[in-house]
Every structure is written in structure tokens, then in C-alpha cells.
Amino acid sequence: MDESRRIEQYQSLVKRMSPKRPVLRNVLWAFFAGGVISLAGQGIMWWFERQGMSAQAAASPTTVVLIGIGALVTGLGWYDRLAKRAGMGAILPITGFANAMVAPAMEFKSEGLIMGVGARLFTIAGPVLVYGMTAAFLVALLRYLITGVA
């Protein structure tokens, strides 16, 4: 048998025989874990509103509190255990962003504050920021071109 044909056959066999990810379980976990985090965020926001803030003003301190909780739970070594089960349900909320910043900071502390923590802090979160900002810019530009509102 021709070598490249044999390799092709092997790769399709690997694909076919690979154990499947438990998609249904993962999706349910993601839905409920993500839901619980969002619910907590909503609760925190209501609390700020009850202190007399407007809904718009309450959004920023809510984000700060959630980031704080995400960072704390990462530092305690629990966030990775949650994300292992909850997947995107834990990665997508702002607490996941905090995790993506704190985890490399902890990991690379041993290389020092400049080249370790400083240089590696955005290793995971960097791409999210780059493409998030690019997307925001493009959408804003489109809106300006279409509606004329900056």
C-alpha cells in the first residue's frame, strides 16, 4: 500500500475511534454554571441599585466585584476545578477573564515581576483583548458609516 494512502487511512481511523467528548454533560454544566455566575452578578448589581445607584452606574462596581471574586477563587486554586467541568460556562463570564489574568501571574511569578508576571500577564487574555477591541472598532465604524452617529 502506498505510504501516504496508509497514513490517510490511519488518520481517519483515529478520528473514528477517538473517544468522544461528553457533549451533553458539558453543555448542561456550562449552562447551569454560567447561569449561576450570571445570577450572582445580577444579585450584586441589584444590591448596588438598592444603595441608590442607577442601573448604568451599578454595572461598573458589579464587574469589579466579580473580577475580585474570580481572582480570589483562582488564587485559592478552585477556579480551574470549576472550569474543568463547566467549560465555557466558567470561561466566558468576567470571572473567567479574571482567571485568565491571575493564573499566568501566579505561574510566572517565579520568573520575576518584570519578565515573569509583567510580560506574561496577558498571555491568555491578550488575544481576547486584541480581537475584542478590533471587533468593537469595526462595529462602531460600521455604525458611524450607516447611521452617522459616532
Binding site: S18, R21, D80, A103, M106, F108, I124
Partner: peptide
């Protein structure tokens, strides 16, 4: 792979 405390999901393989 990734920093130890980063939340990730590992595939079965």
C-alpha cells in the same frame, strides 16, 4: 500547555 490555575477543559485523549 497552560498555567496551572487556568480553567480549561481537557479532551478524553
Amino acid at each position: 500547555r497552560f498555567p496551572i490555575e487556568l480553567g480549561t477543559q481537557r479532551p478524553p485523549t
